[in-house]
Design a protein around this nucleic acid. Sequence first.
RNA 1: GGCGCCGUACCCAAGUGGUAAGGGAGAGGUCUGCAAAACCUCGAUGCAGCGGUUCGAAUCCGCUCGGCGCCUCCA
Length: 469
Amino acid sequence: MEVRLHNTLGREIQVFNPINKSEVGLYCCGPTVYNYAHIGNLRTYVFEDLLRRSLEYAGYSVNHVMNVTDVGHLTGDEDDGEDKMEKSARETGKTPEEVAAFYTEAFFTDIDRLNIVRPKTACVATKHIGEMIALIKKLEERGFTYTSGGNVYFDASKFERYGEMALLDRQKLRNGARIEIDTNKKNPRDFVLWFTKSKFENHIMQWDSPWGKGYPGWHIECSAMSIKYLGDQFDIHCGGIDHIPVHHTNEIAQSEAASGKKWVNYWVHGEFLLMDKQKMAKSAGNFLTLQTLIDKGYEALDYRFFCLGGHYRSQLVFNFDSLDAARNARLSLNQRVSELKSEAEPVAAGNLTGRALEIMDKFSKDILNDLNAPKALASMWALLKDQDIAASEKLGAVLEMDRVLGLQLDKVESDSPELTKEEMALINQREAARASKDWAKADEARDKLLSMGIIVKDTANGSQWKKRL
RNA sequence: GGCGCCGUACCCAAGUGGUAAGGGAGAGGUCUGCAAAACCUCGAUGCAGCGGUUCGAAUCCGCUCGGCGCCUCCA
């Protein structure tokens, strides 16, 4: 099946053609583990998971690599010049290593709860300092660097296509609009590859290098690690839209300057989650974590479902009314799947026929056309609500869809639970009360069953029951 | 100041030239002892506003209004 993706290089939807027909190289920018991920960050990982699952759905094997940044970089707008990792460490009384370990674990807990498939390789920055130094040396040998004020800089003027993806040439950049200008730079677009002159005192995390003891610049780790695990040319690199102008621009410059080749063929970027019409950001203090949602009684998958309701390239407005809508919709979805499971065995995806096959094909076409999850979900509802499709076909199709959607429909229990003796006794008591028209007693039994998680419904064929999902 | 983008029903949200997907909430109905669930029906003659192009525009162009992001912390 053909996959189409919006490529930031060229700003258009393109047919995806991998370098290697069987395996796709996919690099996703990962977390900086100095704090919890917020749900805006997690939206991007849900999008990347949708991308990975879609590629696998289309028949590709995906070599998925993600970095874990445990080297701190500069803090926020009210920058006091401190390293994020070390700031967090100081505030919590831990070492940077302990901080990294704690938030790395928290991050993977979150993505597991969201049913995001873990990357095949999660590479840690501090374990790849050697590769970073080697890459900087290569850039130095090829004449793309200079040293100033003790730091090694990338000379952007030496790389002709600098800023091409971000369309920087069309912009009249306002230098230092938001940050302090580094007077060591020859050109505002230059960036640090290796620091030896720390702006901050007593920097804990430092390594020996040919340029002196110090630590790497922000961008070099992604280039060094992606090249190590995926080669100096690979298929897809993704991340948040905010990375286009700086981080990814600089990554492209240093990677292509080092190899002399085009580095990445497709750049795919996810849009922001908005909170009260503003971007959700740690620095703005308006962020929510997944755990906060769970503490409020939502499930992680409710948030995943919410994310799938919007297209990854559109800003998505978060509020609790919308999250409630997602939760209710998912509850209804699970109920339907549960009922289908009690009625029939799923038809294998390859054996779908008729209307179910038609809907399945539309679903595939939409999801593989730049990951249009909202359209795909509409197909899913069309399938489930169709009166003429057999339960076995519906179940087979919806489970196939869930390979991409990742809503754990395979784990939904069949809607014919075994009851305990006590529960069964209550059912029988209620039936007896109903037979003698003792409605108060019957309702009491129903309420008690409900409190035990059993929903009773009366049909023409007698009472039926199901577990509350 | 420059650049990128958005404005679709009560809410969220698809739709980039052919006559408005889907979800949630809501209303009415069937069924029921009552519920619940399920199912049926209803819901924008309209896509921020005003012009223009076109046989035809939410979709293209212009202007106006409103909003978001970026311009080296950022998903």
